[in-house]
Design a protein around this nucleic acid. Structure first.
Length: 114
DNA sequence: CTTATGACTATGA
DNA sequence: TTCATAGCCATAA
């Protein structure tokens, strides 16, 4: 396996500010390989965890949903950790990427209430 | 070489 | 909005 790929992924994940989240595809693009979004997920699976400096709980799907059944303590635990950092969840169980997505590419005017 | 699998994503019903 | 399908990349059989 190309561990360099993993290190790049971890490096990006470590840059996620507290209280923000990002997607697998976004990370894949940051490291220059947008087609390897699946491997980013695999890197999270093999990540040393938060104690290892890799807050994988801040990485979610493109739609803001979490990975059910594969997280360290389950999607429920992951959700709790994000909420503890100030990340709000929608009633659908998804994260509001519009507000907590990283990088925060939300326009102060765009989408500001029709 | 063809199939199958996977912490993904985009698209269509 | 939620569910299903196809596409993509790398590895294994």
């Amino acid at each position: 396996m190309d561990e360099g790929f993993f290190q790049r992924v971890y490096g990006v994940v470590q840059q996620i500010p507290r209280g923000s989240v990002t997607t697998y595809g976004q990370i894949a693009r940051m490291i220059g390989e947008p087609r390897k979004a699946r491997y980013v997920g695999f890197a999270m699976h093999a990540s040393p965890g938060v104690a290892g400096g890799v807050p994988c709980h801040r990485v979610v799907f493109a739609d803001g949903s979490l990975a059910p059944g594969f997280a360290f303590g389950g999607a429920d635990e992951q959700r709790r950790m994000l909420e503890d950092e100030g990340v709000a969840f929608l009633p659908s169980g998804k994260v509001d990427l519009r507000r907590y997505g990283w990088p925060q590419t939300n326009d102060p005017k765009a989408g500001e209430r029709p």
